[in-house]
Design a protein around this nucleic acid. Structure first.
Lengths: 213, 213
DNA sequence: CCTACCGATCGGTAGG
DNA sequence: CCTACCGATCGGTAGG
């Protein structure tokens, strides 16, 4: 019996969106369930039994797909950072050569917010659960995290050289302020709220006086 | 045997700063230990046994001071918000009547950063562990949290009326951006870094073009 | 404030 | 993918 068939036969299957149930292999269902749990319950409460229940299988069966709980957690945390990294990188690459640093900042903010709120279980898991990971796991996951933060370091440098950041202001402070603002969005954003586009524009305007797109 | 005597006699007592050991009752030691654990390990990993070990007592003895684990956690989370609330309120009250909304914003940012990084175990616990609290406890702790956020809602309203926030920008976006920036500071600030004063000034200048104090 | 203990639950495994 | 189970650990309590 496959994992999908097992899920389809159990009432617990309703815990996972049915449209993703068919498209994805068992591993993806386990990752989705783990992402939700990491976001809403934290690392310790993300038990193999809770993951299994959301997927519609038994706890022991998880070890057919992954070698350990921490291997699943690592994948989820890293995917949460990677999906935003790719979205921001793609948005910056799509800009014309004549785009100003201000255009690039606004595009980066918008891509970060859109992608992180779109895949909010994964990105929120990356942010909320990170500090509570076991030390070795946290160290491993820091690599992808740093890689993404480097993008913002370059953006800040360009913005500063173009005069969008006052000379007396530390570039570190500017970068960390902006990252704080966008990372915090997962804590308060609800779909009923203002469109993400508008929020991104507001953020850019407050920080850099950027024009609306 | 009192809790302090027990702590002084055990090697575990080194986990708690000795200068606070004598001044404080057993309850305060338990709260300090819980704050550290909530910040660095999260709610589930903050076990009664781990708290007891940091204080230098046995797990069962905790229940001589508090009725339950959640009662301790509630105190810590609420104190984390209250200490910042009081600091910001005091800073605003200390301003002269002729202070501009820009002065008030910078004073609030500075007081928030100074107090939250000063009592960082409590405030970080409030921020990091909040989402993972049991539902009833989270609901209880939301009261103090909302009370503090209201201060910023008023600050934003005044700043907007004074022209420090562009008319097209949503006041909610401005408030949440700023709260995200200051709440995130606990994630990256290290004592060796730039002085908190300077960081607060940079934040204010980026967001409102405020002059340095 | 401690010892000893309760029922429940944890990550992981053996052997189907 | 499941059943049954391992040793370890959880919050909390009884009775000193």
């Amino acid at each position: 019996m496959t994992i999908s068939q097992a899920a389809a036969r159990t009432a617990k299957a309703s815990a996972v969106k049915s449209e993703t149930l068919d498209q994805n292999g068992g591993a993806r269902q386990i990752l989705n369930a783990t992402a939700w749990l990491l976001r809403h319950r934290g690392y310790e409460a993300t038990t193999t039994r809770a993951i299994a229940e959301r997927v519609g299988i038994k706890a022991g069966s998880i070890y057919h797909h992954f070698p350990s709980k921490d291997a699943i957690v690592e994948r989820v945390i890293n995917e949460g950072v990677l999906v935003v990294n790719k979205a921001v990188t793609a948005a910056l690459d799509a800009l014309p050569d004549k785009a100003t640093p201000r255009d690039r900042l606004q595009a980066a903010i918008k891509a970060h917010l859109l992608s992180s709120l779109e895949h909010s279980d994964y990105t929120s898991a990356s942010i909320r659960a990170f500090a509570f990971l076991p030390p070795e796991l946290r160290k491993t996951c820091r690599v992808e995290r740093r890689r993404y933060e480097d993008i913002w370091q370059h953006l800040m440098r360009d913005a500063s050289q173009a005069g969008y950041i006052p000379k007396e202001v530390s570039l570190d402070a500017a970068r960390l302020m902006l990252l704080g603002a966008v990372n915090w969005a997962g804590e308060w954003y609800r779909p009923g709220r203002a469109p993400i586009d508008k929020i991104a524009g507001d953020f850019a305007q407050i920080a850099f006086g950027a024009r609306r797109t």
